[in-house]
């Protein structure tokens, strides 16, 4: 499957494809009187591209923000499943351990509730994301931005950092190798050392994807990665997302407005309207659902 010899798997989950990875149960969120989400339930299976669609203000971004710990839901639960002892940074550490040790013992699945965790704790479990309105580190270069994706995997040793030569430098170089693979996969070579603030919108969106992917995530949440793009740029971005999915084997939750894109690249679709799930199924099933046609497609006209 891989087009070239990547040394590192960019997926951070050891869950077998088809198993439930993320389980959202009866999730509700209110801002004062506004009910952004009410009783939202759905399951993301490992290895899939799962689209979340719905008209503006349906609660899609709020849903992602709940998963990544930025919003605290009023009720309900969000559970991430992972192979015990292989979540987030622990996995990369184990992968460098001798393989016979890894194979030993039956893999047991651990369930972890995300609902009470802070964003950085969620990230450490291997949940990466991009934002609807690009949230890059403007004054840093593309490379530095993507290096921040490695943050959860890196040790923080202040004394070593002051000295530089030694462990700090070694660590930078080791992680730089993985970052270069991400840069290569998303074709950001030419932009590597430019400050992200100066880049075109479409490229910034790609840098955000790269930064999230560098986390070697178990789950990748993408909030409208193609918003504000023309058809050609959208196609490019869809291609990159498919590459990430196929070459890197990452499970993706994708928020997208454009029905055509969603139908093309996703295996599962959840439709939100006014904070409620009105349909959930394969793209073909969802397309036929009359409630969807009315709420979503109707709203576009």
């Amino acid at each position: 499957m891989r087009t070239r010899a990547y040394q590192h798997s960019l997926s951070g989950s050891s869950m077998a494809a088809g198993q439930p990875l993320l389980e959202v149960e009866a999730l509700s969120l209110a801002f004062g009187g506004v009910k952004a989400l009410s009783e939202v339930s759905f399951t993301v299976t490992s290895g899939s591209i799962h689209a979340v669609i719905g008209p503006n203000g349906a609660g899609k971004s709020s849903l992602l923000n709940c998963v990544s710990g930025l919003y605290r839901p009023t009720a309900g639960s969000i559970v991430l499943n992972f192979v015990a002892g292989e979540e987030g940074r622990k996995r990369t550490q184990r992968m460098s351990a001798p393989s016979d040790e890894r194979e030993a013992g039956e893999k047991s699945i651990e369930r972890r509730a995300l609902t009470r965790l802070k964003p950085n704790r969620v990230a450490r479990l291997g949940v990466a994301r991009s934002f609807q309105n690009i949230e890059l580190f403007d004054q840093l270069s593309v490379l530095e931005n993507i290096m921040l994706g490695r943050h959860i995997h890196m040790k923080q040793n202040l004394a070593a950092a002051f000295l530089w030569t030694g462990p700090a430098r070694k660590q930078e170089i080791a992680h730089r190798v993985i970052v270069e693979e991400v840069i290569d996969l998303l074709k950001l070579q030419a932009e590597r050392s430019k400050p992200v603030g100066t880049l075109a919108y479409g490229i910034q969106k790609r840098v955000e994807l790269a930064r999230a992917l560098a986390m070697q995530p178990a789950l990748l949440l993408l909030d409208e990665p193609m918003a504000g793009m023309n058809a050609e740029e959208k196609e490019d971005m869809a291609r990159y997302i498919l590459d990430v999915h196929e070459l890197a084997g990452v499970t993706i939750v994708l928020i997208e407005h454009d029905m055509n894109v969603v139908m093309d690249i996703s295996q599962q679709v959840t439709v939100l309207d006014f904070g409620k799930v009105i349909a959930d199924g394969t793209p073909a099933e969802v397309m036929k659902n009359p409630a969807v046609v009315e709420a979503y497609l109707g709203a576009q006209k």
């Binding site: 990544s68 710990g69 930025l70 802070k118 964003p119 950085n120 969620v122 990230a123 450490r124 990466a128 994301r129 934002f131 949230e135 890059l136 580190f137 403007d138 004054q139 840093l140 530095e144 290096m147 921040l148 994706g149 490695r150 943050h151 959860i152 890196m154 923080q156 202040l158 070593a160 950092a161 530089w164 700090a168 660590q171 930078e172 992680h175 930064r211 986390m215």
Partner: peptide
């Protein structure tokens, strides 16, 4: 030049994104 200093700058530029990256 290291991850620690980069985290400082990430907090300066965009603290919400920084926390979502695990900072």
């Amino acid at each position: 030049r290291t991850n620690i200093g980069r985290a400082f700058m990430a907090v300066r530029d965009q603290d919400i994104a920084a926390s979502a990256m695990g900072v």
